[in-house]
């Protein structure tokens, strides 16, 4: 809990995640449970605290299995945490039900990665975008159409009849992703979780979507959790970056700080993995081994120790706490790196 105080922002946060854990029990055979009677868990999220103020865009980065998507699902109540509390606008979301839950649903939306599977193939674009309005009881047809057109316009699409009556397969990947953004903003939510919204798009349309998200923050006051495995898409959009590794935040701070002065070896490895435009530049990379260890059997001490090139015996004793290295910039490492990062 001490972390919360450290990480809190002066303004009252819109969303506050406090020491949240999500453990999935591992199914064992009867024989295995005889030998090893302790129940085993996949620790997808293992103690995460993070606070978001209004209109902030925070980037959650990490490789597959780091728990970033699970965190997104916990915040949107697609899953419930095993431990810890998530507070949205002052209310604990785990206790929501009935009208309060529906109100919460209205205020928190999601944009998914896959622009093909994210839209119902049998729904027209109009049907897709109007659905949230129908669910939330907007009865007036004219009002609905007006709001659908507004949402599509805000998402950078021309709400003409051709588009409204089109099916997802008539649209390109970028257009579909804009439709899914329109669906997410049609209810004018406060918080949007964007789960890798550009990683399946062509590089040429990525920046368009990223600019759109930045614009929506300013025009309709969105707060955005931007989940990505790619640091390069995060750096221009986000205010802060949280780097996740095996279910915990290992480094968090203002975007410029983290990109330019990353202290954690893992963050540095991620940064140095971003391809360069100039092929002749030689750089010393922080090399790390191929795969993260299993989230069931975590290494003792620091969970990055098994892959860390700078590991020392002290690293294996206890898991380090988040330490503030610069204002608002926290690192979970007992050997923070200070040498320049190679770009």
């Amino acid at each position: 809990m001490s972390e919360n105080i450290l990480l809190s922002t002066p303004q009252t946060p819109l969303l506050s995640v406090d020491d949240v854990k999500k453990w999935y029990p591992v199914r064992q055979s009867m024989f295995a449970s005889l030998i090893q009677p302790d129940k085993r868990f996949v620790k997808a999220i293992d103690g995460v605290s993070i606070q978001l103020k209004k209109q902030e865009i925070i980037g959650l980065v990490g490789e597959s299995g780091s728990g970033k998507s699970t965190l997104g699902e916990l915040v949107t109540l697609l899953q419930t945490p095993t431990e810890g509390t998530i507070t949205f606008d002052g209310a604990d979301i785990s206790s929501l039900h009935g009208d309060a839950l529906k109100q919460f649903r209205k205020r928190v939306q999601v944009i998914f990665q896959d622009p093909y599977a994210t839209l119902n193939q049998r729904f027209t674009i109009y049907r897709t975008v109007v659905e949230p309005l129908i669910i939330h009881g907007v009865r007036d047809k004219g009002e609905r159409t007006r709001r659908v057109k507004l949402a599509l316009t805000r998402s950078g699409l021309k709400p003409e009849d051709d588009l409204l009556n089109a099916y997802p397969h008539n649209l390109s990947g970028g257009q579909r992703q804009r439709v899914s953004i329109a669906r997410a903003i049609v209810l004018e939510p406060d918080l949007v979780v964007a789960d890798e919204p550009v990683s399946m798009l062509d590089v040429s349309v990525r920046s368009g979507i990223l600019n759109l998200l930045a614009e929506l923050r300013d025009t309709i006051g969105l707060t955005i959790i931007f989940i990505s495995h790619d640091l390069s898409t995060v750096q221009n959009l986000c205010d802060r970056i949280a780097v996740m590794y095996l279910g915990r935040i290992v480094e968090i701070g203002p975007v410029k700080q983290v990109i330019e002065r990353a202290f954690h070896p893992y963050t540095r490895a991620l940064l140095e993995a971003v391809p360069l435009v100039d092929p002749d530049v030689k750089r010393e990379r922080t090399n790390i081994d191929s795969e993260p260890p299993s989230a069931i059997d975590l290494p003792p001490g620091c969970r990055f120790s098994s892959r860390c090139p700078f590991v020392t015996p002290e690293c294996l004793i206890a898991e380090p706490e988040l330490v503030e290295m610069a204002p608002g910039h926290y690192v979970r490492c007992i050997h923070p790196r200070h040498e320049p990062i190679w770009y």
Binding site: T76, L77, L78, L101, K102, R105, K106, V108, Q109, V110, F112, Q113, D114, A117, T118, L119, N120, F123, E131, P132, I135, H136, S180, R183, A184, L187
Partner: peptide, 22 residues
Amino acid sequence: QRPYVKAARVTGASNLRIMYVH
């Protein structure tokens, strides 16, 4: 398992609505 079902759930669609409308 499709994301559009998750999207409907996030929007607040009931189970019946997801089953019979989506």
